[in-house]
Amino acid sequence: MTFKITEGQTAMVALRAALIAGVAAGLGGCDTLSNLNPFDTSEKYEMKVTADVPPERMYDQGLARMRNGDREGAARRFGEIGRNYPQSEWARKGLIMQAFANYEAQKYDDAITSSRSYLQKYPNTKDAAYAQYLYAMSNFNQIPDTSRDQERSEKALAGLTELVQKYPNSEYAADARYRIQVARDQLAGAQMEVGRYYLERRNYTAAINRFRDVVSKYQTTRHVEEALQRLTEAYMALGLTGEAQTAAAVLGHNFPNSQWYKDAYSLVRSNGLEPREDADSWISKTFKGFRVAALGR
């Protein structure tokens, strides 16, 4: 976009220059601000006048910086629009572009701040879904491995879920649904890692709590098969054979060809038992509830 100064803008610039010239003449030729204060011994600053840059020009400058690969510079320029013209439509456009530029620069925390600011100020605009997507993806791209704290995974999951719920027909919904599954799998993997740690140290109660969390919250992830087998192992070690049999039976009903089921079956059989589901067990109730929910969808 080529910027052209209108006649009205030219007149305003000329008027401002004339006024400034008059003020300068009235000050008797003083060329610095510090000359006005006889007690000021600080560094002297020259008096300068910066012409106003229209918001559309600032926006174009931000786009130019993006094209040149200066994403951080573009983000700063887009941000200046809101500070200089907070009530303009260009401020809204600049804010979503600021979030995008920060995201492209991998300044994810800055992108989160910009996108959240957009959602707070302009929740019902056409770019709100994109702002939500940028917020969620800025967290998603910071998901760590399963051995570390999963706060980012939780925030990514919450942001993606909100996107699907608020903007189910947006162009970002399909990708969000896929990434929801990835985030859930990551959270389940983190629980499994801690559960295995406790199991290896024979802290069976703590291990069960972790595996139970996977079975209860993350049934659609790839970790649920192992979680059921590990529950079979932990319950058997505690002598809670009924729960162990139920875990093995539920595993067999839902994943009959799984290697994890073969291991659970062998473990139960080695103790002279068979997989048998107790309908009153939390494991059985959890999976029945899951099947009903799945059929409802």
Rank of each mutant, 00 (worst) to 15 (best):
M1K: 10
T10I: 05
L15D: 09
L36K: 07
F39M: 13
K44R: 15
K44N: 09
M47K: 09
K48L: 14
T50Y: 12
A51N: 11
D52C: 02
E56S: 14
Y59W: 12
G62P: 08
L63C: 05
A74V: 10
F78M: 07
N84A: 12
S88F: 04
I96K: 05
N102Y: 00
K107E: 10
K107Q: 12
Y108W: 12
S117N: 10
Y118S: 05
Y118M: 04
L119R: 05
K121R: 15
K121V: 00
Y133L: 07
M137K: 07
D149F: 04
Q150Y: 05
Q150G: 06
E151L: 09
G159E: 08
T161A: 09
L163T: 11
K166A: 09
K166M: 10
P168Y: 12
P168E: 12
D175G: 07
D175H: 11
R177C: 09
R184I: 00
G189L: 08
Q191E: 14
M192R: 11
G195H: 03
I208T: 06
V214R: 03
Q219H: 07
Q219Y: 06
R222Y: 11
A234M: 05
M236Y: 03
M236V: 00
A244N: 08
P256N: 04
N257C: 01
D263N: 13
E277H: 00
I283A: 02
I283F: 02
F287I: 07
G289H: 04
L295Y: 08
